[in-house]
Amino acid sequence: MAPLLTVEHLTKRFGGLTAVNDVSFTVEEGDFLGIIGPNGAGKTTLFNLITGFLPPDAGEVRFKDQPITGWKAYKISRLGMTRTFQITKPFGHLDVKENVVVAALQTSSTLREARERAEGVLRFVGLESYRDRSITHLPMGLKKKLELAKALATRPSLLFLDEVMGGLASDEVQDMMEVLRKVRESGVTLIMIEHVLQAITQLSERLLVLHHGAKLAHGSTREVIRDPEVVEAYLGEVDPDAVH
């Protein structure tokens, strides 16, 4: 069977800068792929290219055996690939539950069904007691969870997470990791950008390392974090034996 997602020779230039340079990889159904690299390595741009928020200059993306290169973001989302944003993007005039209802509506036939499903997703990520809260004063940890809840409510088969743990306190990171494990168990394939290396090395079994827009390393987490080049560049602070 063909992989769930195939990315081939994806390239994006901004003026003289090549933000993403000839990146190729595949993701199988059920995978949990981590993407790491220093700031400016092109991680978020790669997400934007795959999920339809930016058109690539070259390369191809295939998802569920369909070429989706250059598709609009909403069409890609409807095919089952969605994402979260590094800077959370809640719907500011709607309350917590309504935010999730909007997402659930995309895969529900009635509003009633969407509301029930939104309720379920809120429980799943542990936001049920905040359902009536307005977005305005929601703390960062909860905003990140809401971002995840919205994405999950569209019932994706492939979910891109852009730093869902950025800016969280350590207990919140633990909490988020629990939720992500549950997401994984529910059968969603995950691709995740993360700066919290402890978290990403514990969660993902494969890693892709980007450096100046190009693929530096790609393989199982164990191998990649022992790769001397990678260790030297980025992982100095992680003890490889702490990885599962």
């Binding site: 999920t51 909403y74 979260t84 993007k89 809640p90 919205k150 409510a153």
Partner: peptide, 26 residues
């Protein structure tokens, strides 16, 4: 306030990119 279209509309108003990510034809 009671329809799919209405929720989509308010989502587009509040954040267009996020609405697209959820599959809304903004």
């Amino acid at each position: 306030k009671e329809s799919k279209f209405g929720y989509e509309l308010m989502a587009v108003r509040d954040n267009e990119a996020a609405a697209q990510a959820l599959g809304i034809h903004t």
